[in-house]
Design a protein around this nucleic acid. Structure first.
Length: 424
RNA sequence: GGAGAGAUGGCCGAGUGGUCGAAGGCGCACGCCUGGAAAGUGUGUAAACGCCGAAAGCGUUUCAAGGGUUCGAAUCCCUUUCUCUCCGCCA
């Protein structure tokens, strides 16, 4: 959520920035400014009213103590009068505050200066490319056929047990996935990320704090009996560790990593992109989360990007890095890099990681702050996160790119985790 | 799931209707003391919001959350959430 103070002080700047995300906020911003002025006037009037009531109550207390209780009656009448206008102010205030929040919550985060203008995936800026992204010959087999041939992932079985998008990993397929998870977690630990195992279900407050609610309500599985949501990413529970927390500057940077299963309804996506492992309802991911001082968050974003690039390099996968354009960025993000690996058999780039700086947007919703040593004031911290990495598409690319006559060759870096060097 | 007890500041803990944002202790910060440190000692030690911005100052709110009684609630009543103990169930 944008800070009301930012809007109050830089309304035009906010409007201009939101245009980069293709949002015309002119009307909403002027509504917000009007409501904000009304709210402050009401607050002042209400505060003065309450102050008067408190003063009179104290007087009554003194009268009671000194045995002059009878003299209190006129004061009581006065308070009764004040209470009528208090109630009016309070009702109006509650209503206006709800109104302003209802609008604020719909405004996305402001994009960073470096974010290119654009409407969709085609407008993203390719800022880096690495590895051999030539295509394989015509005999190359897509992963959904390979996994069947080697009996390592069974989509039909998952459909029987649950439904489409819930595959069953078997034998060396299950082991390869576990190897990747361990490789990712060990790598993060080596970079001083503290490993956590979060809950896979969260309450409404948590889903709201990281921005899944109210914007992406329909994308999460909802366990209605207890009103819990299945997490779409570990970002949600891990970032919420720091909800309503005031940090010290010396706590920065906070670095957490977490493996979790992720659950996404993916309502509205059908067709070619959902084939095989490309888009699932349940998948595994290792997530890295950092909380940083506002001055250093962009430096941290670059570190995180470099870290993820390093993982892809070790896995010997061709990849590219995109700087997302305004139209393709998420609601909460100020700057996002996507990493895509090239699947030589599908002849397609597959998104395997998204690294973002949310600046103070999530922190504002979840009241994640720190004490500024210079001023002694509490200020909002910056939150960042990234996938490091999402498993299914990595699996798909490894299986496809490493197919040989003899089987699927396991990259060197994973062999100590898998215990085998080929799937055949 | 049933029965009971509880939830107070960074932590421990007092407070059962009035001047209580809250005693005391610990911790922390700064100072004194010391050659230096410990001990001792003094002072300070929450957040949000409003009063045109900043500072100062003033005010409002906050003792799990929400509602109620009262001129006045940490304190009384109701609801919810959570924690602990016992019983039941159980990986």
């Amino acid at each position: 959520m944008l800070q009301i103070q930012t809007i109050r002080e830089n309304a035009q700047f906010v409007i201009d920035k939101l245009k980069v995300k293709n949002v015309d906020a002119t009307e909403n911003i002027s509504k917000i400014l009007a409501l904000d002025a009304e709210i402050r006037a009401l607050k002042t009037s209400l505060d003065n009213n309450l102050m008067e009531q408190n003063r009179l109550s104290k007087e009554i207390g003194i009268l009671f103590k000194s045995g002059k209780a009878a003299d209190a009656a006129p004061l009581k009448d006065k308070i009764a009068e004040l209470k009528i206008s208090e109630k009016e102010d309070q009702t109006a205030l509650d209503q206006k505050e709800q109104e302003i929040i209802d609008i604020l919550v719909l405004l996305p985060n402001l994009p960073h200066d470096s974010v290119p203008v654009g409407f969709g995936a085609n407008d993203n800026e390719i800022i880096h490319k690495e590895g051999d992204d030539s295509n394989m010959d015509e005999t190359a087999v897509p992963h959904w056929d390979l996994v069947k041939k080697f009996d390592i992932i069974d989509f039909e079985l998952g459909t029987k047990i649950t439904g489409a998008g819930f595959p069953v990993y078997k034998g060396k397929g299950a082991k390869l996935q576990r190897a990747l998870i361990n490789f990712f977690l060990d790598s993060a630990s080596a970079e001083n990320y503290t490993e956590v195992q979060p809950p896979y279900m969260v309450n409404k407050d948590s889903a709201y704090a990281t921005g899944q609610l109210p914007d992406k309500d329909g994308q999460m599985y909802h366990a209605t009996v207890d009103d819990f949501y299945l997490i779409p990413t570990a970002e949600v529970p891990v970032t919420n560790i720091y909800r309503d927390v005031i940090l010290k500057e010396s706590d920065f940077p906070i670095k957490n990593c977490a493996y979790s299963a992720c659950f996404r309804r993916e309502a509205g996506s059908y067709g070619k992109d959902v084939r095989g492992l490309n888009r699932l309802h349940q998948f595994d991911k290792v997530e890295i989360v950092q909380i940083q001082h506002p001055y250093r968050s962009y430096q941290t974003l670059e570190e995180m990007r470099n870290y993820v690039m390093g993982l892809l390099r070790k896995l010997e996968l061709p990849f590219r890095v995109l700087r997302l354009c305004g139209g393709d960025m998420s609601f909460t993000s100020a700057l996002t890099y996507d990493m895509e690996v090239y699947s030589k058999a599908q002849q397609k780039w597959l998104e395997v990681s998204s690294v973002s700086n949310f600046e103070a947007f999530q922190a504002n919703r979840m009241k994640l702050r720190f004490k500024d040593e210079e001023t002694g004031k509490t200020k909002l911290a910056h939150t960042l996160n990234g996938s490091a990495l999402a498993l299914p598409r990595i699996m798909a690319a490894l299986i496809e790119n490493n197919q040989t006559d003899k089987g699927i060759v396991i990259p060197q870096v994973l062999r100590k985790y898998t215990g085998f060097d080929i799937i055949d």
